[in-house]
Amino acid sequence: MKRFFILLFFIVCSAFALAQGTDTLYLWPGTVPGETEAKHPPVQTANTSGNVTRLTDVTDPALVVFEPKAPSNGASVIVCPGGGYNILAIDKEGYEVAEWFNQLGFTAFVLQYRVPNKREPALYDLQRAIRLVRSRASDWKLDPKRLGVIGFSAGGSLAARASTRFGERTYTPVDAADSLSARPDFSLLIYPAYLDEGENRSLTPELRLNEATPPQFLFGTADDRYGNSVLVMAGALRDQKRPVTLHFLSEGGHGYGMRKGNDAAETWPALAEKWLRRLTLDDNRPLLP
């Protein structure tokens, strides 16, 4: 038993060593809403296939802070890794993405939301994270009106849910931060999953769009088994006359992050950068309501 805990300690430490963040910000100061297990460090799984570090058993949700080495542009983004709501592909769809945003001048926050099989609590975690970053925007010299989210696969589902359910009180407020808005100012959904769980593969019913739904950048591929999600979401945003940009390639598959060797992985970052610059950087204005 002692050897087991020593091994677990080193697994957890190795996972955190991969993160080059400047700080870790825990979301819930006391009891974690909707959580039945005690707080403990996340567990790195033994599966490292594809050179991916996978975390699971998250009971103490947190943000890993990545501050830009170059001058900050005052904008920020919360990164939601994917993993089927079972694990978090924490490096491939988290830390590596955050470092890319740093190169653009963004302050990035990688979200360790609750897994496995905790879809609703995961939404609590992202909503709380958005509010917490806004409440402490002055600490990082950020504009609280230029805070977005980006998500991959299940993380894309989570980002879409936060971008459409921000008007709901999903958990009991715990402090003054929870009086702030949980609405992202912009959203990027990269090969998102689970957005077409409605009748006849229509928009998932919980995703309720309206005039306040933030601008969205959607990217997917035709050979992705979840590829219908971006098409359904783009159509729904268009129907609601909300700002939406869709890019859809013929090939790329799923779960490629932004690593070299996959055309889709090498394509979306340049397109996203152009969209972000037009939306948040070039003239430094607040985003559309």
Rank of each mutant, 00 (worst) to 15 (best):
D139L: 03
T48H: 05
L55K: 06
N117K: 15
P33I: 06
R131N: 03
T45R: 09
G30R: 05
E99N: 13
V32T: 06
D91I: 11
T56E: 13
R131Y: 00
L27W: 02
N117D: 14
N73S: 05
D139N: 14
Q112K: 14
P121F: 09
N117S: 15
L123D: 07
K145E: 00
S49R: 12
D23H: 05
K92Q: 15
G83M: 10
L55A: 07
T48N: 03
L123G: 08
V115K: 09
G34V: 13
V64D: 07
L88G: 05
T53Y: 14
L55W: 11
F106C: 02
F109A: 05
E37I: 08
G84V: 12
D23K: 12
F106K: 02
E35F: 12
Q20H: 09
D91H: 11
T48R: 12
F109Q: 01
A70F: 02
V110Y: 06
E120Q: 13
Q112F: 10
G34R: 11
T22M: 00
L104C: 02
K39H: 14
F66Y: 15
G50M: 05
K39C: 14
D57M: 13
D139W: 03
P61Y: 13
S138I: 00
V43Q: 11
G82A: 10
A129F: 04
N51Q: 06
Y124C: 09
A70Q: 07
D60H: 15
G34K: 15
N73Y: 00
E99G: 08
K92G: 08
G83V: 10
T22W: 00
A108V: 06
V65W: 04
L18I: 13
K69G: 09
I90G: 06
V43E: 12
I130K: 00
Y113W: 12
W140G: 01
V79F: 12
V133D: 02
T45Q: 04
K69C: 05
D57P: 10
P68N: 04
A75Q: 01
G82Y: 11
G74D: 01
H40Y: 09
E35Q: 15
A129D: 07
T31A: 15
L88T: 11
E67W: 01
W28T: 05
E96A: 15
P29D: 07
R146G: 01
T56F: 08
R119M: 09
L88C: 07
N102P: 02
D125N: 07
A137K: 00
R128V: 03
P33H: 09
T59E: 10
T107R: 02
G50S: 03
V115L: 08
V115P: 08
T36R: 15
N47W: 01
D91F: 07
R134A: 03
G94R: 12
V43I: 11
Y113S: 12
Q127R: 05
T36V: 13
G94Q: 14
Q44G: 03
N117A: 14
R134V: 00
A98S: 12
L18P: 04
T31F: 08
L63V: 03
A129S: 03
